[in-house]
Amino acid sequence: MNEWLSRLASLPQSWFETPVAAIALTLGAYFAGIQVFKLMRRPSWCPPMLIAALLIAAVIAVLPVGVEDYNRGAAWLMLLLGPATVALAVPLYQQLPQIRALWKPILLTLPLSATLAALYAVAIAALLGAPVEILASLAPKSVTSPIAMGLTRELGGSTALLMGALVITGVTAIFGVEWLCRLLRIRDPRLIGLALGINGHALGTVRAFEISSVAGAFASLGMSLTGTFTAVALPLVWHLFF
């Protein structure tokens, strides 16, 4: 009987020896997060992903396993971020006619918007006395996560902190775009989509697809171009200063 109990107690650890438990936990929490999100009547300040991450954190805290055990398994799932980034070539190519038609205004505004998205946050954090490691984790905050993670490693920031920054940025951008568009009486779905994609990366793009397909298309355009531009420009500019 005792032996059986001790075997039961060591069960969670043996689950997490292979990636299976971590992947199952992630998928389960993802669907549970979406359910809870619907029950909460889709609050714009709390995306399903945040609910799911909290659920996972709670499960790990209760079970006798560490967050490292979870990370080791979830890394297998996150391997898909690489091919998912490459897959962004599809929306990019689909929107080429629109990019061609609007290349002048987009070329004029997008690099500036993408630069400002990084600059405001880094400048405010620097003024408030945050150390370089934190600045490096905040700088790619408006960039879609696979690109942002590569960037923050390149700059010497913390990936975990960056992920937190990405979620806060995405949620704030969605809230900010909807609030400011009401205030400024902006109804053009192309503009709303671009603003969501440039400032709110994948989270903003998912929201834009909920508004309309035009907004979604322009959001993925804004997201891919911001990601590409920042991936090229940020490391170059960063190494001038640090």
């Binding site: 992903m49 945040l50 991450a53 898909l80 975990a160 992920m163 937190g164």
Partner: peptide, 17 residues
């Protein structure tokens, strides 16, 4: 794959807590 982007970000967020 693109629809999964939010799911793929999630495991990275857990560590912050």
């Amino acid at each position: 794959l693109i629809a999964m982007l939010a799911l793929l970000i999630m495991p990275g967020v857990v560590e912050i807590f």
